[in-house]
Design a binder for these strands. Structure first.
Lengths: 193, 193, 193, 193
DNA sequence: CATGAATGAGATTTCATTCAT
DNA sequence: GATGAATGAAATCTCATTCAT
C-alpha cells in the first residue's frame, strides 16, 4: 500500500465499514474483516480511528451533518408531490447502508446513541419551520405524525424494500410505486398543519 | 423438574436471552452473559439448545406461533377503534423485547431470516381474509398500506417509545395518546378496503 | 490436557507465572508465554483468573499470607544468631522469585500496590510485639532501622545475590557468609531496643 | 537547533522517557506514550535513537558517567557526617527516577545489564581507593558491607521514601532524619576499615 | 530534523462450543 | 439435567519499528 494519502485511506475504511455494518450489524462486523475488505492492515484502522466505536460514531456524525445541510427536495418548486417523494426516496436509497445501521443501533435498549432522533429532529423542523409557533398539544401531535407516520415508514421502506419484495414476490417498480401511493394517502394527505 | 426463580431452566434461558438480545443485540450478547444472568452453567444452555442461533430461532418461533394463534382485539366486538388499538398496543408492548430483536435482525442485509415478514403476513391476512379475493394490483396496494403505514409504525412505536419520549421530553400518557390519534388518522381512516 | 483437576491447573499457572514474572518482569511476561510454559491453553488462564493483573495479585496475596502465618526462626530457641539468620535467608531464597516481583512492582512510582509494606509491617511487628509500647519518636526510629537496614538489605541480598557474585567474581559460600557477617554487625548489633 | 520547552529534542526524549520508565517500568512504557508526552512524533525518537533499548542504555550510560565523575560529598571537608550524608541523599533524590529504573531492571533475573553494579563499583572504590590493598578476604567483607548495608539501603530509601512515608503515615522530615540516623549507626559506625 | 502513514507481530481478552463427570 | 474445566479461534487493540516525504 502506498503511504501517500491518509485521507483516502480513511474514506476507504469508512466506506467498507458502512457496508459491512449494514450487512451483518455493528457487533458481528470485525475490524479484521474491515481491514481485509479495505485492503489495508488492521493497525492502520487504529491509526485513523481511536477504536471500533469511533468508526461508527464518525459514520453517524457524517450522516447527521449531511442530513442537516441538505436542501429538502420536498420544498423544491415545479415538482408534484409524487415526483418530490420519489426524489427524496431515491436520495435515501443511496444512504440505505447507514440508515440500516442507524435503525439497528437505535433499537438496542441499552444504547445511549440518539442519532436517529437527531436526524428526525432536523428533518421535521426543517420541513415545517413554523412548527415552533404551534401550541404544545398541537406540536406534539404534529411531531408524532411526522415521526411515526412519515419518517419511520420511509426509512423502513428504504431498508426493508428488498426483503419485502422478495418475501411477497413483487416486482421492483410496483413496490416503490405502491409505497409512494400509500405514504401520500396516509401521511401527506392527513397532515394536521 | 428443576426450576430457577419458578421457571423451568429452558424458559429461564429464553427469558434472559430475550431481554439481553433486546438490550445489546444478538451478536453482542454472549452465552456466557446469558448463563450468568440466568444463574446457571454455560454448558447447561447447550443441553437445552443446539447452539446460540437456535436460542434466537426458538424465540422467533415462539413469537410467530403466538402471533398466529391470537385473536385480534381489533375484531373484538363492543370496543371502539381507539380502545381496540390501545389494547393491541398494550399487548405488543409486553412483547417489546422480542419485537426489538425481530426488527434488528430483519434489517441486517445479510440475514435470510424472514420472521418479521411471516408475522406481518399472518397479521395482515388475519385481519382481512377476503384479501385473497382482491385483484392483484389492489392486493399489493393494500399490502403496502398495511405493512408500511400500519404494521411498521406500530412495531416501531412499541420499540422506540421510550427513547422518543426521552429525546423530545414528553410525558408517557401523551405519547401513547398522540400515537393512537395519528395512527388512526393516517392508517385506519385511509384504508382502501 | 485432562479435564480433571482445576486446582492443579491453577497452581501450575501460578508457579509458571511467578517464575516468568521474576525473569522478565510482569509487563514483559505475556499470558501467551505463561500458557505455553504451563502446557495449557491461553483461555484456560482466563477461566481461573479474571485477568493478568489478578494472577499477580493472587501471587502477592499468597505471599503475604505465608509471611504472616510463618513462625519466625529468629525467635526459635537453641540456635545462635548466625544460624538463625542463615535459616531465615534460606527460607527467603526459596521465595526469591516472588520477592523479585514484589520489589520490582513496589519501585514503580505509579503503583498503588503496597504488598511490600504489608509484608514488612507484619515481619517487623511480629518480631517485636512490644513495639507498640514505644514512644512515637522511638517507634519511628525503630521502624526505619528495621525496614531500611534489615528488611530491605536482606530482600535485596536474596534477589541480587547471583548477579553480585558474578559481577564481583566471588564464590557462592563466601557471599552468603560475608553477607551474614555484615548484616549482623550493621543491623542486629545496632538494635535500638 | 530546534527546542521543545527549552530542551533539545533528544534531551526532551530522555527526560520524558526517564520519568515514564520510573512510573510504569521500562516494558509498560511505550514509545508512543513517550512521543506524546514529549510533544513530538514517534518517528523522531527513531531518528535520535536506534531503538527503545538504546533509550534505556543512554539513560544508564549517562547515569554511570555522572556517578563516576562526581566528587563525593562524603570526602568534602568542613561538614560533619550527618550533613555530608544529607547532601549525598539530596543529590541522589534528584536522580530518583533513573535509580528506580536501574533497580527494577537489575532485579529481573534474565537481564544481563549490570549498570547497578558498575555504579556501585565506582562509588565504593571511589570512597576507599586503598581498598585494593586489602587482603582478599577482608576486601570481600568490606564490599559486602558497602554494597548491602550502605549502597542498597540508600538507593532503596530514595526510591521507596514516599511510599514508606504514606504507608506508615509519617511526616516528610522525620523520615529522612530517621533514615540518616539509622544508616549512620548501622553502616557508617560499623565500618571495618 | 521531523512527520504522517503504515505495518507485522503480538498483546490481552472473549467467543461459542465441548466433554468428562 | 447440570457443571467445572478446557479449548481453538477470533475479537479488539497496542507494540516497536519503518519509510517516503
Amino acid at each position: 500500500m502506498p503511504k501517500i494519502d491518509g485521507y483516502l485511506t480513511k474514506e476507504k475504511i469508512l466506506n467498507v465499514a458502512e457496508k459491512l455494518f449494514s450487512e451483518v450489524g455493528y457487533d458481528a462486523a470485525s475490524i479484521s474483516t474491515i481491514s481485509k475488505l479495505a485492503g489495508i492492515n488492521k493497525a492502520t484502522i487504529y491509526f485513523h480511528f481511536k477504536n471500533k466505536q469511533s468508526v461508527l460514531h464518525e459514520l453517524f456524525f457524517n450522516m447527521i451533518e449531511q442530513m442537516e445541510n441538505r436542501l429538502l427536495p420536498v420544498e423544491e418548486s415545479g415538482l408534484n408531490l409524487k415526483d418530490k417523494l420519489r426524489k427524496e426516496i431515491d436520495f435515501l436509497r443511496e444512504k440505505k447502508d447507514i440508515i440500516s445501521i442507524l435503525l439497528m443501533e437505535s433499537i438496542k435498549t441499552n444504547t445511549r446513541d440518539d442519532s436517529l432522533f437527531q436526524i428526525a429532529y432536523s428533518e421535521i423542523y426543517n420541513k415545517k419551520s413554523r412548527l415552533t409557533e404551534l401550541a404544545n398539544s398541537k406540536k406534539n401531535l404534529f411531531l408524532a405524525h411526522e415521526f411515526f407516520t412519515g419518517f419511520i415508514p420511509i426509512l423502513n421502506f428504504v431498508v426493508l424494500e428488498d426483503k419485502y419484495r422478495n418475501f411477497f414476490k413483487l416486482d421492483e417498480e410496483s413496490v416503490i410505486d405502491n409505497f409512494i401511493d400509500v405514504i401520500i394517502k396516509s401521511h401527506y394527505n392527513t397532515h394536521i398543519i
